[in-house]
Simulated assay, not measured.
Amino acid sequence: MGRVRTGVLISGRGSNMSALIEAAKNDAFPAEIVVVLANNIDAPGLNAAREAGVKNAGIISSSFPDRQSFDRVLDESLRTANVSLVCLAGYMQILSPWFVGRWLGKLINIHPSLLPAYRGLHTHRKAIADGARIHGCTTHFVTPELDAGPIIMQAAVAVAPSDTEASLAARVLEQEHVIYPRTLALVASGLARLKDGRCVLDGMGEPRGSIISPSI
């Protein structure tokens, strides 16, 4: 059985994309990154993907009349590359319900908070403002509701009294680079899958929806 052909969607520098590409350099890794797509042609991550030998393309989303029109081009590009899994890695454009439905169970994301806390943007700023003691990141299956899909894996970090938004973000990002490759490996190998709206982790009993990997 061959490795699962995987596409990555980015909007910026693509540091999580690079972590996935690095993990997939190991022939024993169950997924291979075959294409990287961005919603703008100036995303720095496209150069990183190109240097790593991965096919990539940037598409200007503002040139399309609506999200679904753009998402149809994304979908066609992924299917042309014979992709079976899609990873969002700092992809900052909300996907249309049509696209999510096409890839449901085969579309994963990483979010910089311990979901369900702090959906959306500025998660580190919100955690500090709330006086949170624990913060972190979450991988999850993507569903039409923003940042609300079933959790696959989480990593926690302590929030220090001296933390700024930037310092907290840097420590969380380190953990993102750890759990996203692990998550992709789980999903690509079939050990984590979406079933009846929940994440099922094979060999771990009843569906619980998360693995906690603390770093505190």
Rank of each mutant, 00 (worst) to 15 (best):
T139K: 07
T138V: 13
G203W: 07
K55M: 10
N82E: 15
A158C: 06
I94D: 08
A89W: 00
F141C: 13
L74R: 01
V200L: 15
S113E: 07
V157P: 02
E32V: 13
G14C: 03
G53R: 11
S61H: 15
D75F: 03
A28H: 10
D71V: 04
P65R: 11
A148R: 10
A160E: 15
M204A: 15
P112D: 03
W103A: 06
R119L: 03
D202F: 09
I134A: 08
R3A: 01
V200Q: 14
M204S: 14
T123W: 14
L114P: 04
Q175A: 10
N56D: 11
S15G: 02
D163V: 09
A160Q: 13
R79L: 15
T123E: 14
R182D: 06
I10P: 02
R72E: 13
D147G: 02
N40Y: 02
I60C: 11
A19M: 12
P144E: 06
V159S: 02
T164W: 05
P161H: 11
D75C: 07
Y91A: 03
L146A: 11
A117E: 13
A57D: 14
V172E: 05
A28D: 13
V73E: 15
R198F: 13
E76D: 15
F141M: 07
P214G: 02
G90T: 00
I211G: 01
G131E: 03
T183F: 02
S77E: 10
T143R: 13
I128K: 06
R79G: 07
D71H: 01
L121P: 12
L74Q: 01
S162T: 13
L104Y: 11
F141G: 08
S162P: 00
N16S: 10
N82S: 14
G7T: 06
E22L: 13
I151W: 07
G45Q: 04
R13Y: 01
V187I: 09
N40T: 12
P214I: 03
S77A: 11
A127Y: 10
T183H: 04
S210G: 03
Q93V: 13
G58R: 02
Q175F: 06
L173H: 15
H122W: 12
V36R: 00
R133Y: 13
D202S: 14
I110Y: 00
T138W: 14
L104C: 14
V35N: 02
S11T: 04
P97M: 12
S113I: 04
E145G: 04
F99Q: 00
A170S: 12
V83R: 03
N82T: 15
S63K: 15
V142M: 13
S69V: 12
A160F: 14
S18F: 04
L85A: 08
A160K: 14
L114K: 01
